[in-house]
Nucleic acid binder design. Structure first.
Length: 882
RNA sequence: GGGAGCAUAGCUCAGCUGGUUCAGAGCAUCUGCCUUACAAGCAGAGGGUCCGCGGUUCGAACCCGUGUGCUCCCA
């Protein structure tokens, strides 16, 4: 078969993905093997693949593929999240483009459009994950608005309501005037913003021309003021006890109250109190019995209660009221001010704190076992630093606002009668039953109940994900749930530790009586080269699908994984794609080289010359394989990839293949060929989880395979601990080769110039195995040992060098021998080692050191000393000979 | 305002319980090579005040204190 010049990624990706899927390698059913389960963090149903997904899902695929090779029954469950706010916003936008106003649509008609949208655009992202090579069990795909899933969300709502944990109440919430819905605290992002601090004076009700000045960044809320507050110990205002003042422009008479909540140093030390529009003011209002005047409509315009600017947007009002205050003589001054402003996570709109009737979930009791599980490492967090964040949040956990004023989502299963009587039930029928029993007379007259208009927070469905994807609600005793739950590892971003991770743990303990996963691995945030978070608004997020098309999924996975150290952010730079592509090319060429030997193999050919190389490579493989297992266990995936990269490029290609390479047109022993193929296979296997396509392709090209012999399911061999002497011998040979090459260059020897190499050593057995490779790699026509077969130490015209404690002499006809550089180098080495001996001697002569240090440390120092002395001796002799 | 974390080569990071022969890797850089798998390559090299200061210790990149700078989370 003619081999392509390069790896053709597009064809290979289509071919192998289809093959894996057709062969059922992605599918999982419970069996005798231990399970390894991951539930994918469901992306938004309308989302498209971005760098964050690429990182997150590459990590999961690596863990899954690796587990598959080590005897586990792996199950990776895909799915999507209905993403209430995000999706509804998109549908509303689409309707607007069609000239349809959501407000004018009945609920069910809007939902029809929403489902149409979902059918059309939903799940694109799952298709895109195939492109990345994700080995997902597609037969288990879930969606958080599927009927079964919907039912489980409703069940949990009803259950928590029965337990008294879910209740309805008026509280200060975060209002998003664009999406026109309440948000949970977690959905609000605080951003440092440049604002203005306005100083506004309020006339006192003393009949005189006296004022009190307050400072505010939100002057439009003045219209909702119901008090001015000062610190009880603030002498400036002590005389105002029991006094009143007037709200500017509307002249409402409001009291001056005293509370030590006030920061005397801030502004003027006097605070305007607007209980309807600030959480702290609200609490003050509660304490002091102040009225609440809500001056905002749900779209962020001023309400009738504001008296002025009715219907005008809040920010326009802010400008206007400043002008009016100035005109009225109430504006004292304004100054620049930087403060934190809350923005909606989804719509990026400035949040308005607002009093509102919402549904709440009390988290206190649910949080207890969830906190304990993480603190005691029953659930391991990687990196562990996130335990602190988690504890901090869980310790101060507040009630969760779970209702959203939206239509796309699970509708709250609560019904009201005309007297506002409340019935919470799984179905309308059940609610009506309750109604008839509770209020038979009313029900006889008015049989219809009105269902709550709101839907539940998206996260109120996502928190059931690890159990509900295995059909917990309908069949809680099913074999899948028993086998796969608790799942093995959750891979997610630290940003959603509260939104999602913490709540899944709570739901897991509450409903399964068991944690949802053993381990959580938090990936970093994807940033660009300059360290900026990748985002649509910055436009710094590369087009992932284009990258896959251009460079291939393997190169993309390589570039993402090579630069994401455990627990740190990923700084993505497209140059890493090139590194990935080069690596693929390197492997491809190595395959071509090895394949090229096939026709030149001969049975029973003496291969003692390269036995050294084979043994060493086997030892390296065993050694690195063990290291890699540790790294993957600790989620040091980036380090793992670097390690395999180096094993393949340096150890295998640069050293091993060069060592066993037969000469031009020379035959090769069958045994060496087979072992080389075998080694290459194992390297591919180690790399496969990271770069699945190219490895599978080469695995099949390098040798004919029977049906079903695919790399993805090939089990990793068990390696025995490698022999340290074998490993050290390889290192020594490398050192020798490098040293001789370096010396050649320093003496202007061209690569083609041959040399004679004389070695003065006591380690003859080492050279017996290695000499052939040494000779070829340094282009020596002859290699001799001093003291053997009458060989003499050279006296003149030689270049001397020292490797470890062996003395080497290069004899070269072509050399313009300049020993000065060489001597200087040796002299420097000599001085260093002499200095080193002094410092080690000091240590060993120090009684405190000898008394305190561990015995093996002392033994090691003694060895260092002896080695250094040997080295000094060798160097001195070589110098003398020059 | 409260909390967490980080600072090691030009860049991105390793460096485990304080103790290995000038502190390691990749990328980048420099030099020489189109050597019959690979120039998307080969060979070789250079590059560090381990953020500053103080302390503990026989011994500190590592532990403690402090200062500076940066990042993230929460209010």
């Amino acid at each position: 078969m003619e081999l392509a010049k390069n790896f053709q990624h597009t064809e290979a990706e289509l071919k192998w993905y289809a093959h894996w899927e057709k062969s059922g390698y992605f599918k999982s059913e419970p069996d005798d093997r231990p399970p390894y389960t991951i539930v994918m963090p469901p992306p938004n149903v309308t989302g498209v693949l971005h760098m964050g997904h690429a990182l997150n899902n590459s990590v999961q695929d690596i863990l899954i593929r690796r587990a598959k090779m080590t005897g586990y029954n792996t199950c990776w469950v895909p799915g999507t999240d209905h993403a209430s706010i995000a999706t509804e916003a998109k549908v509303v936008g689409m309707l607007r483009d069609m000239g349809i106003d959501k407000k004018k649509l009945p609920r069910d008609e809007f939902l029809k459009y929403a489902w149409e949208w979902k059918e059309k655009y939903g799940g694109i992202i799952l298709k895109q994950l195939e492109k990345l090579g994700c080995s997902l069990d597609w037969s288990r795909t879930n969606f958080t608005m599927d009927d079964a899933y919907y039912a489980s969300v409703i069940r949990v709502f009803v259950d928590l309501h029965e337990k008294g944990l879910i209740y309805r109440g008026v509280k200060m919430i975060n209002w998003d005037p664009k999406a026109k819905t309440a948000l949970s605290d977690e959905e609000v992002m605080h951003k440092q913003t440049n604002s203005k601090l306005y100083y506004v004076r309020y006339k006192l009700d003393t009949g005189k021309d006296e004022y009190i000045t307050v400072a505010t960044v939100r002057p439009e809320t003045i219209l909702g003021d119901t008090a001015v507050c000062v610190h009880p110990e603030d002498e400036r205002y002590a005389h105002l006890k029991g006094q009143y003042c007037f709200v500017p422009l509307i002249n409402r008479r409001i009291p001056i109250i005293f509370d030590d909540y006030i920061d005397k140093e801030f502004g003027t030390g006097a605070l305007k109190v607007t209980p309807a529009h600030d959480i702290n003011d609200y609490n003050l209002g509660l304490k002091h019995g102040l009225p609440v005047i809500d001056t905002l409509n749900d779209d962020g315009t001023m309400s009738e209660a504001a008296q002025l600017y009715i219907g005008m947007d809040r920010f326009a009002t802010r400008k206007k009221i400043v002008e009016d205050l100035k005109a009225a003589g109430n504006l004292v001054k304004e100054e620049d001010y930087s403060n934190q402003v809350g923005y909606s996570e989804r719509t990026n709109e400035v949040i308005e704190p607002r009093l509102s009737m919402q549904w709440w979930c009390n988290m206190q009791e649910l949080a207890k076992p969830a906190l304990e599980a993480v603190m005691s490492d029953q659930i391991e967090f990687h990196p562990a630093k996130f335990k602190n964040t988690y504890r901090h949040w869980m310790g101060g956990i507040k009630d969760w606002c779970i209702s959203r004023q939206l239509w796309w989502g699970q509708r709250i299963p609560a019904w009201y009668d005309s007297e506002n009587g409340l019935y919470v039930a799984k179905t309308s029928e059940e609610a009506h039953e309750q109604y008839k029993i509770t209020k038979p007379e009313l029900a006889a007259k008015q049989p219809e109940l009105r269902q709550d208009e709101d839907v539940l927070d998206t996260w109120f469905s996502s928190w059931l994900w690890p159990m509900e994807v295995f059909d917990w609600n309908r069949t809680p005793d099913n074999t899948d749930l028993k086998y796969y739950y608790p799942t093995s590892t959750l891979v997610t971003a630290p940003e959603i530790i509260f939104f999602w991770v913490a709540r899944m743990i709570m739901a897991g303990y509450e409903y399964m009586g068991e944690k949802p996963f053993d381990k959580v691995y938090f990936t970093g945030i994807v940033r660009d080269k300059q360290g900026r978070k990748m985002s649509k608004s910055l436009g710094n997020s590369p087009d992932l699908l284009q990258m896959i098309e251009d460079s291939g999924a393997d190169a993309v996975r390589f570039s993402v994984m090579i630069s994401s150290p455990a627990g740190n952010d990923l700084l993505f730079d497209e140059s890493q794609l090139e590194q990935g592509r080069n690596f693929i090319n390197k492997m491809w060429n190595a395959m071509k080289l090895v394949k090229g030997w096939e026709t030149r193999t001969v049975d029973g050919l003496e291969d003692s010359q390269v036995k050294f190389a084979l043994d060493w490579m086997d030892a390296r493989l065993a050694h690195v394989s063990q290291e890699l297992a540790e790294m993957i266990k600790d989620f040091r995936l980036s380090e793992g990839l670097k390690t395999i990269y180096s094993l393949i490029w340096n150890d295998f290609c640069s050293w091993y293949l060069e060592w066993v390479k037969p000469g031009m047109e020379q035959p090769l022993s069958r045994n060496v060929y087979e072992r080389t193929i075998n080694i290459y296979e194992q390297l591919l296997q180690l790399l496969h989880p990271y770069m699945p396509f190219v490895t599978e392709e080469i695995y099949h090209l390098i040798k004919d395979r029977q049906a079903g012999d695919d790399l993805i399911v090939k089990q990793l061999p068990v390696y025995s601990t490698p022999d340290a002497v074998t490993l050290a011998s390889g290192t020594k040979l490398q050192e020798l080769i490098t040293a001789v090459r370096d010396t050649r260059i320093k003496n202007q020897l061209k690569p083609k110039d041959t040399i004679k190499l004389w070695i003065d050593t006591t380690h003859h057995s080492f050279y017996e195995g290695a000499q052939d490779m040494l000779r070829r790699q340094v282009n020596a026509e002859q290699l001799g040992f001093i003291g053997k077969d009458g060989a003499q130490a050279p006296t003149t015209g030689m270049i001397a060098l020292v490797v470890q404690t062996d003395k080497l002499y290069i004899e070269a006809a072509a050399a313009t021998i300049d020993t000065t550089v060489q001597r200087e180098q040796m002299q420097k080495d000599l001085e260093y080692f002499k200095g080193f001996i002094v410092s080690v001697s000091k240590k060993l002569d120090n009684e405190k050191f000898v008394a305190n240090a561990k015995p093996d440390v002392i033994a090691n120092e003694r060895k260092k000393m002896a080695d250094a002395q040997d080295k000094v001796k060798t160097l001195e002799e070589s110098l003398a000979a020059m």
